[in-house]
């Protein structure tokens, strides 16, 4: 964990109740994505899925520290973020993946554009870095109205190579906006490693030239994610302006799709010990056991999560597709376009 400019984080072990809650949230995400893996071959979820197995601790940890009413923005790898900010809306989630009217976007969004404005998740995007300036605009609106709300935007390490990231960071610094940039760094842009893409020493160092609070650390450790988030938010409160959290994690599956791709030749499979270290869920589970969490509690959490997912999948499969008139709806506010 390095903190180039932010205050030192206060790392504290969550109490058992809190730890179990974090575990349940991460487990819901993991089991939901495993269910996608299991169901995907039926070809009923006709939407490209960018699974976040290994990423769960970042949205869960960061969002657990955000103030109420915070707005969030994300990417196409958004399942963990969606399920976190909606408090586990598996119905809207699976409804959308199955393309049904019950989906979060009535079947018009799919996996890559999941959003829930009612829960503050305003937008996600399949075009890398595209939600970053939009989040800055939401933060600008808070500043314009002097309402003081926080905006967090999640993006991958590839987004840092897009010009709009730097444009957005510059504007946020210039206007001292209350926006938290969360870089989920898995060291890969599709299949291309950082070393083949970035001509600077590191993302935190490159950002350090800006008047932005920066913290960097292990995104596979939810406790560390929380500590870093709190420290940056605290620095942002003391010295108003944007913050950047740079969190590394391991993408266990292929860029898009439901399989591992260690045989593709661009990276190697982690050994068993490394897997344990890189798997945020296993780490929380291990910590819970070490804290003396009764196995029945873990089992009960798992059963509750699995039952919830099964219900939502069944509901999504049974739900109707959007009717034909939905095709032309929702283009414009206050009326449909003239064809």
């Amino acid at each position: 964990m390095t903190l180039p400019s932010a205050v030192q984080p206060a790392r504290r072990t969550p109490d058992l109740t809190e730890a179990l809650e974090l575990y349940s949230r991460m487990l819901l995400i993991r089991r939901a994505e495993e269910a996608i893996c299991a169901e995907y071959h039926h070809d009923e979820m006709k939407t490209p899925v960018h699974l976040g197995i290994g990423e769960e601790a970042i949205p869960v940890g960061v969002c657990s520290c955000l103030p109420p009413g915070a707005k969030t923005f994300g990417t196409y790898r958004n399942h963990a973020l969606y399920l976190t900010v909606t408090g586990g809306d598996t119905d809207g989630f699976f409804g959308e993946l199955y393309g049904k009217i019950t989906g979060a976007g009535k079947g018009k969004a799919g996996s890559m554009h999941l959003a829930s404005p009612a829960h503050g998740l305003v937008a996600t995007s399949a075009v890398v870095a595209s939600t970053i300036p939009v989040a800055v605009g939401a933060a600008f609106a808070e500043s314009y109205r002097n309402t003081g709300g926080l905006t967090a935007v999640f993006f991958g390490d590839g987004a840092v190579e897009e010009g709009v990231f730097w444009e957005s960071l510059n504007f946020a610094c210039l206007h001292r906006l209350r926006v938290l940039f969360v870089c989920e760094d898995n060291g890969l842009a599709i299949h291309t490693a950082t070393a083949q893409r970035q001509g600077f020493r590191s993302i935190p160092e490159a950002v350090n030239g800006f008047t932005c609070h920066v913290a960097s650390g292990d995104g596979s450790d939810v406790t560390e994610v929380q500590a870093l988030t709190r420290s940056v938010l605290s620095a942002m409160a003391q010295d108003p302006g944007p913050g950047l959290l740079h969190l590394t994690y391991f993408r266990f599956l292929e860029h898009v799709g439901n399989r591992e791709d260690f045989d593709a030749g661009y990276r190697s499979a982690p050994d068993a010990d490394t897997r344990e270290r890189l798997d945020p869920l296993r780490r929380v589970e291990r910590a819970l056991r070490e804290q003396g969490c009764p196995p029945e509690a873990l089992k009960a959490a798992a059963e509750a999560v699995e039952a919830k997912i099964s219900r939502s999948i069944a509901a999504a499969q049974a739900a109707p597709f959007p009717p034909p008139e939905e095709l032309l709806r929702d283009v414009f506010a206050g009326g449909e376009p003239r064809a």
């Binding site: 939401a138 600008f140 510059n170 504007f171």
Partner: peptide
């Protein structure tokens, strides 16, 4: 920064 400023306008409009 035309792209970012358009995104800022969009984020403000959504708000």
């Amino acid at each position: 920064s035309e792209e970012a400023m358009t995104g800022v306008a969009l984020g403000a409009a959504l708000s």
